[in-house]
Each structure stands twice: as C-alpha cells, then as structure tokens.
Design a protein around this nucleic acid. Structure first.
Lengths: 110, 110
DNA sequence: CTTGAATATACTCGTATGGTTATATAACTG
DNA sequence: CAGTTATATAACCATACGAGTATATTCAAG
C-alpha cells in the first residue's frame, strides 16, 4: 500500500538508493556504509525490492542489490508539469539548497 | 522536521500541488476539486507552505495559493545521479505506469 | 553434519501523522 | 454592529511505520 513517493520519503532508503546509484552492493556493504543495523537494512531493502526500486542477485551467501529505474522514472515524470517553473529560477535552487544544507559536506554523521 | 520528500509522500498534498501547477487556487477551490474537508486542506497547505512548496496571497477573505518551485527542484536534483539509468529504458516507464494505473484517464471525481 | 557467516523475518514498542469535529479568527455585506 | 463567508487552529483518535532484539534460514567450509 506504499506509494512510490512514500518509499523514498524514508532517509535511509534514499541513502541506500544513492549508494546503489554508483554500484551494486551487498547488505553488509550497506550496513557498514550507512551505520545501520542489519535487520534495518534488510527491511528497507525488502520495501525497495517489493516496490521495484531494486533487484538482487545471489552471490554465495550474499545478495547483491542494484537499482531498477522504473519507479524513479515515475517520480521524474510526476515532476514534469512543474518544470515550467524551473527555467525562470535556475539559481534559486542553489540558494535553497545552501540554506537547507548548513555544512557543505560531512561524512555519515553521528 | 518533515523532509522535502516526506511532504510529497502524502497523496492529497501531491494532488494539491498538481492542481496548483496549472493555476493559483483558493482553499475552497481545492476543497471541492479534491473532495477533502476544509480543515484537511488547510492543514496540508500549512505543511506545504512551511516547507516552501507554496505561498499564498490574500484576496479579501480568501487565500490564493500558488506553487513555489524550489523544493521540487531539490527533488529533481536528487534524481540526477539516477538519470543515467533512464536512456536505456525509455519506454520501460510506460509499461510500468500502465501496470500501476489500471484506468487510462478519469475525471477527478470522488 | 556441525559451525559460522550473511541475510531474512517475527514481534514488540513508541511515535508521528492524517482525519474528524468543534471552535476561533478575519473580512465582507448590509 | 450583526450575520455570513472563508480560512485557520485545537484536541482527540486511530493507524502506520521505523527501530531494536531475538530467531530463522541459507550456504559455504571443513
């Protein structure tokens, strides 16, 4: 019953997706890169898998997860009607992000 | 404490934004176009306003709400790293959306 | 077949959030 | 000012969801 949008509302799930954007990873990889408990990672991956954001392949005892783009494409498509507001405000985003992101770039936090 | 993504996780809020994408509307307009209670609309608008998705101007007793693009631009920006998956799958989205959206197109109705 | 590593699942708990009803505030109308 | 329209806010409730702990499952190694 979770919508595509609800799925990426969760910060840990977005973090997982961002890591997978670069390359395939195992549960353990994600666990340590994100400082999350193993059950937590598995649970999020389950949600992501059932919603079609990721798929896994088996490598011995490990599962390697990778991105499946369709749901993200759906979100991209939803944004379409709003894009006409963009061009006028090309650099408004930078200002906005600056004020959201106090520190320029920090490793994974506490 | 609501993230940009959490805000648009709510279906009614997405509906409000989609309506506002076309044109400015009053609370009453939204209320009837979406079949929501007035307090519910006001509450969602408050969340959207505080997160910078919309702004309002006063017209007598009515408040006219309109889109502010910045947070949506932020989401658009977040999608950037995944766009490299798009091109390969140009029409995969259509298939995906078809299977999500059973009926092709229906008026807003209750 | 036993052990250990990697991952999945079950269960419980606390909290955040959306809906509703009722009430408050504000502005126009006469 | 009284009445009415438009919107906001408050209080309450039910539910959903993420975190954590414990346990189950699967596979490789010896």
């Amino acid at each position: 019953m979770e919508s595509t949008f609800a799925i990426i509302a969760e910060p840990s799930r977005r973090a997982i997706l961002s890591l997978l954007a670069t390359s395939e990873r195992s549960v353990g990889d994600l666990e340590e890169e994100l400082n999350l408990s193993q059950p937590s990672v598995s649970k999020h991956l389950r949600v992501l898998r059932e919603a079609g954001f990721v798929e896994s392949r088996i490598d011995a005892q490990r599962r390697l997860y990778r991105i499946k783009p369709e749901p993200l494409m759906e979100i991209d498509a939803w944004l379409a009607p709003f894009r006409r507001y963009w061009s006028a405000h090309v650099d408004a985003l930078e200002r906005h992000l600056d004020q959201m992101n106090p520190a320029p770039r920090r490793k994974g936090r506490k």
